[in-house]
Simulated assay, not measured.
Amino acid sequence: MSLPPFLNLYKDIIAIPSISSTDSSWDQSNLQVINQLATWLEQLGFKNEIEAVKNAPGKYNLIATLGEGDGGLLLSGHTDTVPYDEKLWTTDPFTVVEKDDRLYGLGTIDMKGFFVFIIEALKEIDLTKLKKPLRILATADEETSMAGAQQIGQQKKFKPDYAIIGEPTGLSPVVMHKGNMSEGIRITGRTGHSSDPEAGLNAIEVMYLVINELKKVQQKLKDNYSNPHFKVPYPTLNFGAIHGGDSPNRICGCCELHIDMRPIPGLTTNELFMMIKQALSEIEKRYPKSVDVYHLHEPIPSYQCPLHSDLIENAEIYTGNSAESANYCTEAPFIQQLGCDTIVLGPGHIAQAHQADEYLDLSFVKPTKSVIEKMIKHYCS
């Protein structure tokens, strides 16, 4: 049985909803997408392993392998999409619409469509001539917890020499990006009547002290850390949300602050977390058991491909584009745990991701197929 043509493959994969969300009313299993990819890849001679993601019930990874042993090339992507706002979309998100030299649909670039490019490139290659293993990895829940990629990185079942993650980079090789940390700081005070403020412990007033200390950390990061490859060269700390109190005539008993931090390569998520803890240590001593610092989600490390890697050199040659950095996060730091040089490289632009009327510009079709073919032949032949 022959595989469907390019456009039909695209239509089939986009038609399968696979939203991941922290909101349970949106969250969906990705198993149907995994099964469809496995069916297509099996027709090309791949051996498939479908595994449940332990920390994400109902979610699955696919490891499809052509060849034996370690080494070779890994092509990787995630099978989930973000939710969508039906009122803002002018087309059905799950129906690929071709218009104005574009393919519209949820996941066309971010990033189920990348698997279609892989399959289309494989159609043009004599796979019997490959001498090193080629693996296709399809992960779950990148848009929320990255649980799928984290599990792959922890298991270390295989070790490719090189890996390419097909996120939308405008077909420019991304070789480093910042990490992401979302942290919560909760102050638990003692409530009471506002007519006697000293009878309680006002959580808002303690949070004021916390913010002052975090402002110092903010400046310390700016003064002491720098990477010129990023538009914002230093690690950032952003005050994102604050909630506290319930009435002006009560002493505030609880106040919570949520912050976002973006570590650069060379600064680990644990170092940054401990920097926050150290900054608040005196406040914790002054108000015992009143200060709680915790992760809102598991931290995502920063990532950098070794700058000497010939993967970068070949990516620049094959695409005609220079390597660059990115401010968004990907699964790269977890894939890199497999021991392989890793870059992020795929069709479409990040500006179209997470937007209504997401689309793939058809001008990416030929060059993307060509790059994938060249990479497979170079690293697996």
Rank of each mutant, 00 (worst) to 15 (best):
Q150R: 15
G153S: 05
G153E: 02
K157Y: 10
F158C: 02
K159W: 05
Y162I: 11
Y162L: 12
A163P: 03
A163I: 14
I164P: 01
E167N: 07
T169I: 05
G170E: 06
L171K: 01
L171H: 04
S172K: 14
P173S: 08
V174W: 01
M176N: 11
K178A: 06
G179L: 01
N180K: 11
S182A: 14
S182R: 14
I185T: 01
I185F: 04
T188P: 00
G189D: 02
G192Q: 06
G192C: 07
S194G: 15
E198V: 12
E198Y: 13
G200N: 07
G200F: 08
N202V: 07
A203D: 02
V206P: 00
V206D: 01
M207Q: 08
L209Y: 03
V210W: 06
V210C: 10
I211D: 06
E213F: 06
K215V: 10
K216A: 11
K216E: 13
V217H: 05
Q219I: 10
Q219E: 14
L221G: 00
D223S: 11
N227R: 08
P228H: 10
K231H: 10
Y234L: 00
Y234M: 02
T236D: 01
L237P: 04
N238W: 11
N238G: 09
D246Q: 14
S247K: 14
S247R: 14
S247Q: 14
P248V: 09
P248T: 09
N249E: 09
G253W: 03
G253R: 00
C254N: 11
C254K: 14
H258P: 08
H258M: 12
M261A: 04
P265G: 05
T268L: 05
T269P: 11
T269F: 01
N270Q: 15
F273W: 10
M274V: 12
K277E: 13
Q278F: 11
Q278E: 14
Q278G: 12
L280C: 07
L280E: 07
S281P: 03
S281W: 09
E282A: 13
I283A: 09
K285I: 09
P288C: 09
K289S: 14
S290K: 12
S290C: 15
V291T: 10
V293W: 00
V293S: 07
